Computed example of a mutant assay.
Amino acid sequence: MQIIYWLLVALMVVGIIGAVVPAIPGASLILIAIISWGFISGSFAAIKIPLIVTIIVLLLSVGIDFLASYLGAKKAGASQWGQIGAIVGFVVGFLGLLPTLPVGGPLLGMLLGPLLGAIIGEYLYRRDWKVAIKAGIGIVVGTLVGNLIQGLLAISAVVVFLVTTWPQVFGA
Score class of each variant (00 low, 15 high):
Ala172Phe: 07
Ser41Ile: 03
Ala68Thr: 15
Leu71Val: 15
Leu11Met: 13
Ala27Trp: 02
Val131Glu: 13
Leu31Phe: 12
Ala27Phe: 00
Leu148Tyr: 04
Ala27Thr: 15
Ile87Gln: 02
Leu153Tyr: 02
Leu98Asp: 05
Asp128Pro: 09
Lys74Asp: 09
Leu97Pro: 00
Pro50Ile: 05
Ile120Tyr: 02
Asp65Leu: 10
Leu108Glu: 07
Leu60Glu: 03
Gly42Arg: 01
Gly85Cys: 05
Ser41Cys: 03
Gly136Met: 01
Leu153Arg: 10
Trp166Asn: 13
Asp65Cys: 01
Ala157Tyr: 02
Gly38Asn: 09
Trp166Lys: 14
Gly171Pro: 03
Gly104Ser: 10
Leu116Arg: 02
Ile40Gly: 01
Leu153Trp: 02
Val9Trp: 00
Ile149Glu: 03
Leu60Gly: 05
Thr54Ile: 03
Phe161Glu: 06
Phe66Tyr: 15
Leu7Lys: 07
Lys130Cys: 00
Val131Pro: 00
Gly42Pro: 07
Ile133Thr: 14
Ala154Lys: 05
Ser41Leu: 03
Gly117Ser: 10
Val159Glu: 02
Lys134Gly: 00
Leu8Val: 05
Gln2Glu: 14
Ala118Ser: 14
Ala76Asp: 10
Val20Ala: 11
Ile4Ala: 12
Ala118Thr: 08
Gly171His: 12
Gly93Ile: 11
Ala23Pro: 01
Asn147Gln: 12
Gly138Asn: 09
Ile120Glu: 03
Gly42Asn: 07
Lys134Ser: 11
Ile137Arg: 13
Ser79Cys: 03
Ala45Leu: 06
Gly121Ile: 00
Gly171Asn: 13
